[in-house]
Write a protein that binds this DNA or RNA. Structure first.
Length: 801
DNA sequence: CAGTGAGCGAGCTTCCGCTTGACTT
């Protein structure tokens, strides 16, 4: 016994000793921002280095308070957010046990600030802390960085504090003004408000746009070539203003002789586009793959975490030397050395901070990857763009054929392009195959003086187009051009303005319109009127009534914040702070004094902004009817509020707007709620709520289906809906993946976030990597018993009452 | 969360930039 105990003691003491040695064994603790980056770097650095990540910022201003001391030089108060406390205390512990701490966050304003926050929050010691930076994740870059550490640059940190405090002051003072003057829960900010403004002003341009029409004239000629008849198209360079002019021109062409007057060949070359940044990736993925910007970022994040691509939130087009040589090798192997042209690109976008490389494949020899369709497609797009950026120019030749018309001075012109050397187009042409193959104009080999056979001449009425509405991606492009927002915020900004209901993303089909077409064929002129659908907008951003009213209110009262150059101007001052030329708090003071004065003035003197429009009078009573923004969104109001009269209200459906709704449409809305009669001695009423049309009975709600019209639905149908819902019981709208006959307390359900377990009305997470369908009852019970898998119920933050 | 449309009143909403999971029917 004693011996056994002794052995146990011995083992225990060895174990404890080992634990101790492990604890003091951390020589170097390196902290970066992203866990994926930490993993890569750890491999380069070897066992003397432990690499951890901060998961971005670790401290911020309070969410519920201003967090800026207005009476004390705008001194910010930072706190560690709840979801970061655990991670921060772990880092703190590790830092204490380490000989040296290396702060290796990004080399930009935010990165410098993260390092400073780490230094403060972890209580680091000056003599054992180093600040290092690298722009590319390669072994040489990292070892070089370690050889020249520096200290935290407080000027840059202060520039970040200025940025943070300014955004907080603007956002947290402007938003409450909107709550009072427009509608509660709205928001305003340096970035989002300008984004909405762009959409509102584009909509205004479209409203005042007057479409004009002119006739485009096209001739199709037939040519005999290698004993085959081919055709090609030529166009009149100028458009004809009226139908009369078009007719007169075609009449002149009757019996005319068409001769090749001139053939001109001009060589030119095309260069590839630089590799992707966040913004250009979002644009291309939207155009070529139809991805919304949020999806592009989700997929890119997965590619990054899997190690397939470099960091996806970047404003830089720069490639590391290692990447350049890998690309060169890959191009040489695949296409030959004549296709190689190593290029260094310069970032042109305003306010770029270039802490990272451009977005590129980690290894260029992976032309494709394993994974689902979306991941594969996005990866291949990134690969092609990066590879093409390192390839030689394409050499092309443009041919212009001018065709003489014997009966008039005008001449037809035909243009075509021929590729002499593909260069980078080799990579793009391959990708074009699966798209609709828009064959570039083919020009037959003809010579000067040749007579041409006319097949027909077509004069088609064409209309000028209004400026295009923004897509998510084109809005990002515009914001980037203005220097507003950062790679990490483009996608969130787009979703914020939609969440606030300033903007909706929609596909709206155009309207049909008629146009004239005149054809000359076989020396006969034929006139036709045709119809086409024009102006269809697919997945475009449209400003809502709320967005429009809020923007006009902000422009009227806070034009300097809504100014397209506001960000660019303050950025210049942030730069001055970063260089130590000015103090950050005096910069903020200069901004804040007049800004705050305007806020106060607006609260006191400005009228409520509701976008109110008088629609007309209610038939019968002659009472005024208005469309406006109410406390909960757009409404129709009948009558003004006085001491005696309470006006009547109805919410406007989402597809109608204050500006276009008619009196008749508005009156329709007051037919609801509508009583349907009794069922089981209780009244049924039909109305439209937040989740669409419903029947209310006995205090319960029953949704109408999409095919039911709330204005027309019958009493029989309503009863049917109620009974159907009752039969369906509780689980009607949940999908059960698997049940166990031997234990009906346990169920595997399929929810919005994937499969989960239900046991006696409690939910449990299924561990990652486990196929839910294959789980046995025993396995399920094991999961249920594991305290880790119990899903934490989120505290309901909304206060009752 | 299936109404409401004010303001004596209770209490709340909100910004921009860094980062990933956790979220739950």
């Amino acid at each position: 016994m004693i011996r056994i105990n002794g052995l146990k003691c011995f083992i225990l003491s060895v174990y404890l000793q080992k634990l101790e040695t492990i604890q003091i064994m951390i020589k170097n603790l390196v902290i970066v921002e992203s866990p994926a980056k930490a993993k890569t770097i750890e491999k380069f650095l070897g066992k003397d280095f432990t690499v951890k990540s901060s998961f971005g910022h670790i401290r911020d201003l309070s969410k519920t308070q201003l967090g800026v001391d207005l009476l004390n030089n705008f001194q910010p108060t930072y706190e560690v957010p709840k979801d970061k406390t655990k991670m921060v205390s772990e880092l703190k512990k590790l830092a204490k046990e380490s000989e040296t701490v290396w702060l290796a966050t990004d080399e930009d304003r935010e990165g410098e600030a993260i390092s400073w926050h780490l230094y403060e929050a972890l209580g680091l010691k000056k003599n054992k802390t180093h600040r290092i930076v690298f722009h590319e994740i390669t072994k040489t870059a990292i070892t070089e960085a370690i050889e020249k550490p520096r200290t935290i640059d407080m000027n840059i940190v202060n520039a970040q504090q200025a940025r943070r405090v300014l955004d907080r002051l603007v956002g947290y003072e402007l938003s409450p003004v909107l709550w009072r003057k427009v509608k509660p829960s709205l928001s305003a900010g340096r970035v989002q408000s300008v984004a909405v403004r762009l959409l509102v002003e584009r909509e205004d341009e479209i409203k005042v746009f007057k479409s004009t029409s002119a006739f485009k004239v096209q001739a199709i000629f037939l040519v005999n070539e290698n004993e085959k008849t081919t055709s090609f198209t030529a166009e009149l360079p100028q458009r004809l203003k009226t139908k009369k002019e078009a007719l007169a021109f075609l009449e002149k062409c009757i019996d005319a002789v068409f001769t090749v007057y001139d053939i001109e060949k001009t060589p030119f070359s095309k260069s590839p586009a630089p590799p992707f940044t966040t913004s250009t990736l979002q644009q291309e993925a939207s155009r070529k793959l139809g991805f919304p910007v949020a999806r592009t970022m989700q997929v890119a994040q997965q590619l990054y975490e899997a190690g397939y691509i470099t960091y996806m939130r970047t404003d830089s087009v720069n490639l590391s030397n290692m990447a350049l040589s890998m690309a060169k090798d890959e191009i040489t192997n695949q296409f030959g050395s004549e296709y190689v042209k190593t290029r260094k690109y310069q970032t042109k976008s305003k306010g770029a901070q270039e802490a990272h490389e451009a977005i590129r494949p980690t290894y260029f020899n992976n032309q494709t990857i394993e994974g689902d369709g979306q991941n594969k497609k996005l990866y291949e797009l990134i690969w092609k763009r990066a590879i093409a950026s390192q390839m030689s120019d394409a050499k092309l030749e443009r041919t212009t054929i001018t065709i003489d018309i014997s009966t008039t001075e005008e001449k037809f012109v035909s243009k075509g392009e021929k590729i002499l050397f593909e260069g980078f187009l080799k990579v793009y042409i391959e990708s074009k195959d699966d798209e609709d193959d828009e064959s570039s104009e083919y020009l037959p080999s003809i010579s000067k003086g040749d007579k041409l056979n006319l097949q027909e001449i077509l004069a088609i009425q064409r209309f000028s187009q209004h400026p295009p509405r923004y897509t998510e991606a084109s809005l990002v492009k515009k914001l980037e051009e203005l220097g507003i927002g950062r790679p990490s915020t483009y996608a969130p900004t787009i979703s914020t303005i939609q969440k606030r209901e300033y903007v909706v993303k929609e596909t709206r089909t155009g309207i049909s319109r008629s146009f004239d077409q005149i054809v000359l064929k076989n020396n006969k002129i034929k006139e036709e009127t045709k119809t086409e659908v024009f102006g269809t907008e697919t997945n475009k951003l449209f400003p809502t009534d709320i967005g429009t009213v809020v923007t006009k209110f902000l422009i009227e009262n806070f034009i300097n914040i809504l100014d397209y150059n506001f960000t660019a101007n303050v950025e210049k001052e942030f730069d001055d702070v970063a260089q130590g030329l000015i103090q950050w708090n005096s910069m903020i003071a200069k901004f804040y004094a007049p800004f705050h004065e305007t806020v106060e003035k607006t609260i006191l003197h400005s009228e409520k902004a509701s976008g109110e429009r008088l629609l007309g009078q209610e038939p019968g009573t002659g009472t005024n009817m208005y469309a406006k923004i109410g406390r909960f969104g757009p409404i129709i109001q009948i009558g003004e509020k006085t001491d005696e009269i309470k006006p009547r209200f109805a919410s406007m459906p989402k597809d109608q707007s204050i500006e276009t709704i008619t009196l008749e449409q508005a009156l329709e809305l007051f037919r609801l709620p509508r009583s349907l009669g009794n069922f089981e001695d209780l009244e049924m009423t039909v109305a439209v709520g937040r989740f669409g049309p419903y029947v209310k009975h006995d205090g319960k709600f029953f949704s109408l289906s999409k095919t039911d019209d709330p204005y027309e639905v019958s009493i029989e149908r309503a009863i049917e809906i109620i009974q159907k819902k009752r039969e369906g019981g509780e689980t009607s709208n949940k999908t059960i993946l698997k049940e166990f006959p031997e234990n009906d307390d346990v169920k595997i359900m399929n929810g919005r976030y994937g499969a989960y377990l239900v046991y006696k009305k409690e939910n449990y997470k299924i561990p990652k990597g486990v196929k839910a369908e294959n789980l046995s009852l025993d396995a399920c019970i094991k999961i249920i018993e594991d305290p880790e898998s119990k899903s934490k119920k989120k505290k309901f933050t909304r206060k009752s009452k």
